[in-house]
Design a protein around this nucleic acid. Structure first.
Length: 142
RNA sequence: CCAGGCGGCCGGAUGGCCGCGCGCGGGCAAUGGGGAAACCCGUCCGCGUGAGGAAAGUCCGGGCUCCACGGAAGUACGGUGCCGGUUAACGGCCGGCGGGGGAAACCCCAGGGAAAGUGCCACAGAAAGCAAACCGCCCGCCGUCCGCGGCAGGCAAGGGUGAAAGGGUGCGGUAAGAGCGCACCGCGUCUCCGGCAACGGCGACGGCACGGCAAACCCCACCGGGAGCAAGACCGAGUAGGGACGGCACAUGGCGCACUUCCGCGCCGCCGUCCGGGUGGGUCGCGCGAGGCGUCCGGCGACGGGCGUCCCAGAUGAAUGGCCAUCCAUCGGCGCGGUUUCGGCCGCGCCGGGGACAGAACCCGGCUUACAGGCCGCCUGGCGCC
RNA sequence: CGGGACGUAGCGCAGUCUGGUAGCGCAUCACACUGGGGGUGUGGGGGUCGCCGGUUCGAAUCCGGCCGUCCCGA
């Protein structure tokens, strides 16, 4: 499924990839959570909020933050969950997500053990359910 | 070969695709982007480098940083606790000593003081700490239904209670008994000897006087200022109810320096100038160190010293990864072969499972706890063979 | 990073300082009162005292080490 995006060269012209940066501040996490646009999949929870307009107008692409709480395990478990989510996000978000939003991905207990293709599917479905699919990529959804 | 004990070490490997942090070099992007500013930053390529033995728990000890701090004596509080050594230091470690366990190798022990004092020892038991006598034993006298009973004394062997009952075992001794006498053991005191010491040993004397609990209060000896990298420093915007400095005013009082005493010190009100708080703003602190490895010397050892060599993570919503393949170690099942002390063990093949505990956050020395599996060395005991 | 509290019956708590018997309320069970339910009364059952060691004759209690939960401060 990663191959489909690579092969669609003509589409890539109109649907170019957005650069992904991290969301580092607690205030941003709170703002995204307050928006209450969220979807819980078996492997992850996704929260979405429109990015506040930077008046200078320079878009920096989508911003993504990760959360792994103590509830899902010790430090090793949390690190592994966050790294898998990071890998999944890198594979999906730049092409499939609306570029004018901020995202927070929260790890769940199954994040570390869920089969990777299913984790990718979880993220796609969550984007769709949160109405955060990139318009031109909507038809590409499985 | 089997069983056991001790010490040390390792803790998956190789490859493919796609990525991350930091450092260095080069190209492109510049009149560049974000931001109030300090300050931070792109993209492409190459090279280097990137978690642990416990990085964990945060139980001790230090370095470092800031704060506090005048001195003396005593008190309080907390910790440690056989002796000697080691160390920057320790509650760690090493070597001894003593006690306990084990057939042995070896293992375990908060192991100072109970004749400084206070307290406790439930239940049971006559009696629980100071000597005493419930059943009992015995001489004498009296009575007698000849079983024994009473009185006056002597005794603590035996019984019984208990975790513990005023030394233990044996012989002698006696009316019965008793360290009453003797031997051995234990205990105490003293002399001498060995040892730096803890302690051990020989001997003499004592004739049992000294129950246990100090992880009960306590006594003795020694140690201890407080806080922690969110320490702290600088930069930026920028304020007063805070601070510093200068001037004026000023007490007899109040507060503070753990407590007390003595001496000592600081602060309090007004004006001016400068600084200054929060907002988890930014940068530094932030990796050459009680450092790693090798080797030689001293030491039983912990450890110390010399020489050579290496530079070895620095994130901050937090890099060190995601996915996959093969191999190896290994586990379960089946089959075949070998061996056996009939419990098993070893080798080969096939199928399936499948990587333990766990992630640096200022650094270091320990301790404690978790951990699939494996390797090496030494020691003790048993069996077999030569 | 620093500090503190708690863990005892199904639930909520005493007992721990000062060591020897684990107790109270609710719930639960049986019986009685009632035509039945509720309610009341009487009686009963139920606890590895978070786990592992140590001290002691004896540990829920004292000491040490682990585990878990919660709460403060910076």
């Amino acid at each position: 499924m990663a191959g489909t995006a690579v092969e669609t060269t003509p589409k890539a012209e109109q649907c170019d990839v957005s650069p992904v940066t991290r969301l580092p501040r607690r205030a941003d996490f709170l703002r995204v959570a307050a928006e209450r646009r969220r979807w819980a999949a078996p492997g992850l929870v996704l929260q979405v909020a429109p990015r506040p307009e930077p008046e200078s107008g320079a878009e920096t692409g989508v911003r993504v933050g990760f959360t792994a709480t103590k509830k899902i395990g010790n430090a090793v478990t949390r690190n592994r969950a966050r790294r898998r989510l990071r890998a999944a996000v890198r594979e999906i978000i730049p092409r499939a997500a609306r570029p004018d939003c901020d995202y927070v991905v929260i790890a769940r207990g199954a994040t570390g053990t869920r089969a990777y293709p299913k984790l990718l599917a979880d993220l796609r479905i969550a984007l769709e359910k949160c109405d955060a699919l990139r318009p031109c990529a909507a038809g590409e959804a499985p």
